Computed example of a mutant assay.
Amino acid sequence: MEFNKMEALLEKYFEGETSIAEENELKNYFSSSNVASHLEQYKPLFGYIVEAKNEKFEKNISLLSKKKKISWLSIAATIVVIIGIGTYTYFNVNDYFNVNEVKEKQELGTYEDPKEALEATQKALAMLSNNVNTGIEGMQYIKVYEMTKDKVFID
């Protein structure tokens, strides 16, 4: 009779439907010496649960001290600063070694002779005038379109 009850409890256990009291009953049964021979295969399972409950973790875990954390943080900050300086130098190295080009860039657009300056200014204004006239011609098409549209939709 008790074997049938244990088999039914085992089925409930494997389906995940047992209560804590029923699981304790199974543990007590399988930890005793009078286990049915056809249920012997489940004895290590419930024996392990009892043994695992009694195990304790005894390994010593060393924690990092604050000094070690701060030293790693300072090393990382130093590396970031060095990379930043290196990147800045890499991208701006031409400015340091090409001083003549920098002076030429600063002197761009200055004239010693007033006649040359007048000619360059007139040339620049003529180019500007041509571009503005081209834009105004484009606006003429829009004006014609609006007048035509007004005639079509008003009448």
Rank of each mutant, 00 (worst) to 15 (best):
M1T: 06
M1F: 06
Y13H: 11
F14Q: 06
G16H: 03
E17D: 11
T18C: 15
I20D: 10
E22M: 03
E22R: 00
E25H: 02
N28V: 10
Y29K: 02
S31Y: 02
Y42G: 00
Y48V: 02
E51Y: 02
K53V: 01
K53T: 05
K56F: 04
E58F: 01
K67G: 05
K68Y: 07
I70G: 00
S71D: 12
S71A: 14
W72Y: 13
I75V: 09
A76T: 09
A76P: 02
A76Q: 04
T78W: 02
T78F: 07
V80Q: 03
V81P: 01
V81I: 15
I82P: 00
I82S: 07
G86T: 11
Y88S: 07
Y88N: 08
T89L: 15
F91G: 05
D95S: 09
N98T: 04
N100S: 11
E101F: 03
V102S: 09
V102T: 14
E104R: 15
E104I: 04
K105R: 15
L108P: 01
E116P: 01
E119P: 01
E119C: 01
A120N: 08
T121E: 12
L128H: 08
S129G: 09
N131D: 15
N131M: 10
G138K: 07
M139H: 08
M139T: 11
I142F: 11
K151Y: 10
K151D: 06
F153C: 03
I154M: 08
